[in-house]
């Protein structure tokens, strides 16, 4: 068997089943654990407890503590063990309880995992997957609600994905596992319960490929994670007014799907980036810049707009918390103004 067939194998899914986003992730991990004995899961309270968000529920019963490894509360060390294991032949999926805690492990993720292949001139590989529950909306306040995709997206050597549907949550996680390099999967906490049809077999959703969730010609909205759903809701409302918005689900922050975004903006001439991370120096800045630098520039018919998180930590008060990240009405307002040439 050659390596190529192993990596690119994608079975035709055919059958689907309704699953929640969390179940789809669990399904992906189950398939991976069954397919590949080198796959292990690591993280805090992922065993009997089932993980902070119950994503790994019951897996320890089937696979045992040697493959479903509870780690001490040692994010830096735990991430580093995962890196070392990946470097030497295992395929660890490391779960952070909250993406915020990855700040404790930045050293291993950014200095080690992302750079080892390069520093060693291609002589080493770190096929580790970091799963990071992210985003606000749960009342967990400033240290349990952040969206760090831009942080990690800034690091060459990492791949960063943000699934917005159960189907992609499974497909992107399996793609992350098949990838020979470190991949960070941001799972939005508010999406864990979202249901959707998910192919039952093994399949991968390509990393680096955005999805057009709705076509339109008036405005392009590039959104990620839960913002995709808010953008779609805004688009439905705007359609009633005759404004057809194209909604692109970014799916992958790094590598970013330049072609899809550029093609859409060339069609609509208007771009709105919607993301939950802090607006300044966020993912929207990159998308804006890539459009400004691309051939799509000459198709722009309005200034590029960004809707991102407030320049503040995520607050506790529920009204403040909502106000700190883009909501449907915000997206609707800005998209409408863009469509009408009022921006």
């Amino acid at each position: 068997m050659n390596a190529q067939t192993q990596i690119t194998e994608v079975t035709s899914p055919g059958e689907t089943r309704e699953m929640s986003y969390a179940e789809a992730i669990r399904d992906a991990m189950t398939i991976a654990l069954d397919r590949d004995p080198t796959v292990i899961l690591m993280g805090e309270d992922i065993g009997t407890y089932g993980g902070a968000f119950q994503v790994t529920l019951d897996l320890i019963d089937k696979y045992g503590p040697e493959r479903i490894m509870d780690t001490p509360i040692s994010e830096l060390g735990g991430a580093g063990v995962a890196v070392g294991a990946a470097l030497t032949g295992l395929k660890p999926i490391f779960e952070f309880q909250f993406s915020d805690f990855a700040a404790l492990a930045m050293e291993q993720i950014v200095n080690q995992a992302a750079k080892l292949r390069y520093m060693l001139g291609g002589e080493a590989a770190v096929p580790v997957v970091f799963r990071m529950p992210a985003g606000s909306g749960t009342g967990a306040a400033a240290q349990h609600s952040q969206s760090f995709e831009a942080w990690f997206g800034h690091v060459p050597g990492l791949k960063v994905v943000q699934p917005s549907t159960p189907e992609d949550a499974k497909g992107l996680l399996l793609a992350a596992l098949a990838d020979p390099d470190p991949v960070i999967v941001f799972e939005h906490k508010l999406l864990y319960k979202m249901k959707g049809q998910v192919p039952t077999g093994y399949y991968t959703t390509p990393i680096g490929k955005a999805a057009i969730r709705r076509t339109g010609d008036a405005v392009t909205i590039v959104a990620s994670a839960i913002m995709v759903h808010r953008a779609l809701e805004a688009a439905t409302k705007l359609a009633a007014e005759g404004i057809e918005v194209e909604v692109i689900d970014l799916r992958s922050v790094r590598p970013i799907d330049r072609d899809t975004i550029i093609a859409s903006v060339k069609k609509t001439g208007k771009l709105l980036c919607v993301y939950e991370g802090v607006r300044t120096l966020g993912v929207g800045a990159e998308i804006s810049a890539l459009i400004a630098e691309s051939e799509a520039f000459d198709y722009l018919d309005a200034p590029i707009q960004r809707l991102g998180g407030a320049e503040a930590p995520i607050p506790y008060n529920p009204d403040l918390e909502r106000a700190a990240v883009p909501q449907v009405a915000d997206i609707e307002t800005v998209a409408r103004r863009l469509a009408k040439g009022e921006v």
Partner: peptide
């Protein structure tokens, strides 16, 4: 598995390598 520019960087990695074994 490499020299490391980060003091302490190799410690968890070594544990990971041992885990693999």
């Amino acid at each position: 598995l490499g020299a490391n520019g980060i003091v302490g960087g190799g410690l968890p990695i070594a544990v990971g390598a041992a885990l693999t074994a």
